[in-house]
Simulated scan of single mutants.
Amino acid sequence: MHLSTLPLFAALVVALPSPNPSPAITVPLPGGPSGHEVQIEAIAFAGSGCPAGSVAGQLSSDLTTITLLYDSFVAQAGQGIPGASYRKNCQLNIKLKYPSGWQFSVFKADYRGYAQIPQGDTGTCKATYYFSGDSNQVSSTMTIKGPYDDNYIKTDQFGVTSTVWSPCGLEGLLNINSEVRLSPPDATKNAQLTVDSTDLKFTQVHYLQWQTCS
């Protein structure tokens, strides 16, 4: 599987790994003590739904939202379509540094897309969130039953008891594994499940929340 890296400049821009990566940027921690900063180092991605050159994104200036755009996150099934196309996935690794005494978690994520699913078939959108080195994880699944031919939105929102938090005062690597899948994979009628309703780009918005460590 190909692994690509998104160095963060003023905005996230897709780039191939290079021997001399561009320096990371730093931005103030919202609500944090004066002089403390969070360093956003990189976003890596790999998977059939996010090959090299197919992802772009932007990080909000207040560190509350990461918006990612995909142009290859499209699952397809039906006559004349390769069998492996019924499922597409993307594994994101988001690396951040932040001051001792602070931590963050994903508490909401919005997935927008388009589905064309015939009678008797189904489409599934799933996302799993976890931090490297931590066995705790949370997942959310949405199923779309045919017949369906319209845009959709999938919102993941986790309560306090189910929220996955980053390590306290350490460098955290947040993993987000998302997938779209059609069933049955050997459908005779054409089916499609994408993740942007207008231009076949997948838009994924991850909201970050911060708290002081107890």
Results as ranks from 00 to 15, higher is better:
Glu179Gly: 06
Asp196Pro: 00
Pro21Ile: 09
Gly146Asn: 07
Thr122Glu: 12
Pro33Ile: 03
Gly35Arg: 07
His36Thr: 15
Asn93Thr: 06
Ala46Ser: 15
Ala109Thr: 15
Thr5Glu: 11
Val27Thr: 15
Thr128Ala: 11
Gly172Asp: 03
Gly159Lys: 08
Phe73Gly: 00
Leu59Val: 14
Asn151Arg: 05
Gly57His: 01
Ala10Thr: 04
Pro167Trp: 00
Phe131Trp: 00
Thr198Gly: 09
Leu12Ala: 13
Ala11Gln: 10
Ser22Trp: 06
Ile40Leu: 11
Gly49Glu: 03
Phe202Val: 02
Cys213Asn: 13
Asp199Gly: 14
Asn151Tyr: 05
Ile40Asn: 04
Asp71Phe: 12
Ser54Phe: 08
Leu68Met: 01
Pro33Arg: 13
Gln192Trp: 03
Leu12Tyr: 01
Tyr86Thr: 01
Asp199Tyr: 09
Ser214Glu: 06
Ser34Phe: 01
Gln103Leu: 14
Leu170Gln: 15
Asn175Glu: 11
Tyr207Met: 07
Gly146Thr: 02
Ala115Phe: 05
Lys108Arg: 14
Ser61Ile: 09
Thr198Pro: 09
His206Lys: 04
Asn93Gln: 13
Pro185Lys: 10
Ile40Met: 10
Asp71Gly: 15
Thr141Ile: 13
Gly172Met: 07
Lys88Leu: 02
Thr128Val: 14
Leu200Glu: 12
Ser183Ile: 07
Gly133Lys: 10
Trp210Thr: 01
Ala44Thr: 13
Gly49Arg: 10
Thr5Arg: 06
Arg87Pro: 00
Ser22Gln: 00
Thr212Trp: 05
Leu16Cys: 11
Gly83Thr: 14
Ser4Cys: 06
Val138Gly: 01
Gln76Glu: 12
Leu96Asp: 10
Lys154Thr: 03
Ser54Met: 04
Gly101Ser: 05
Met142Gly: 11
Ala24Arg: 03
Phe107Ile: 12
Ser54Thr: 15
Leu68Arg: 09
Leu208Ile: 15
Leu208His: 08
Met1Ser: 10
Ala56Val: 13
Thr163Gln: 14
Gln76Ala: 14
Lys95Asp: 08
Thr188Val: 12
Asp62Glu: 03
Asn190Cys: 02
Gln76Val: 11
Ala115Trp: 00
Asn20Glu: 09
Leu59His: 04
Ser178His: 10
Ala11Thr: 15
Gly32Thr: 05
Ile153Arg: 07
Gln119Ala: 13
Lys108Thr: 04
Pro184Ala: 03
Ala127Gln: 10
Tyr129Ile: 10
Thr161Gln: 11
Tyr207Ile: 09
Gly169Cys: 13
Leu208Pro: 01
Leu208Gln: 08
Trp102Lys: 05
Glu37Leu: 14
Ala11Val: 14
Thr128Leu: 13
